[in-house]
Amino acid sequence: MNNATDIQRTLDRLDELRSIFVLGQRAVPFIEEVVLLIKDMSPLLENINGSLQDSASKLPSASSQLESVSQATEMATTEILNLVDLALMKCNELGKRIEATGAHVAHVRGENLSFKKVLEDTLGLAWPAVAAAYESHAGVQESSLRAMEKSLGTQQEAVNVLKEGMTQIMMSLQVQDITSQQIASVNHLIHTTRERLNKLTENLGARSVDEYDDVNLRLQSGATFDSNARYDLPGLREVTEPELAEFDSAGDFATMGDIDALFANQ
């Protein structure tokens, strides 16, 4: 009885084994296909890996170029600021000269009146005889003084316009700080992308991208930036009725009106 059971068990095992072989036989073509697919994919993966390494190796150069742009704009801004400072200084000098000349004109007018008084007092009864000639002379002089005052006024107006323009140029140069922060933000992204590509290529079994570098990333250590920095005309973000209830909604830009209302309530 025991022998019959054992034989039956053995036959069952053999059946199971046969099933496994049959399954194996059926699976072999599939496995072959998978192997062939992997063989086909291998060059593709190598291509991908090559592309990743190529892209990653170009990133330091892109970063370096961006850094150069930032440095160049900083230098240009400094040069413009120097010129603006010089122009403002000259405008101020010119303004002072115009003011001094205006004061001189007023002084001459005052002197003329004093002189007239001296003549009247000195000549006494004889004054009416020379008064007409004096008034004619004084009239010509007054006309010249008025023309001079008018010219000074025009000059002062031009100086004021120039000063205002120079101040506006100076204020517009804040764009340099804003764009350099945006560039720093892009550089940070490049740095992060490069690190991730580096990890990816390492996982694909290739050498680290760093080993291919001949240019180091020139991202300054501790560089600080605002990725949302943007250049609007000053005061453009003004609103008439700030809605403080919505003030803390994340991701929204604050207006000058928002800020004024918020700090006024402090």
Binding site: D177, I178, Q181, D226, N228, A229, R230, R237, F247, D248, S249, A250, G251, D252, F253, A254, D258, I259, L262
Partner: peptide
Amino acid sequence: TRGLKEDV
């Protein structure tokens, strides 16, 4: 340059 409301 930080103009977000949460920054303020």
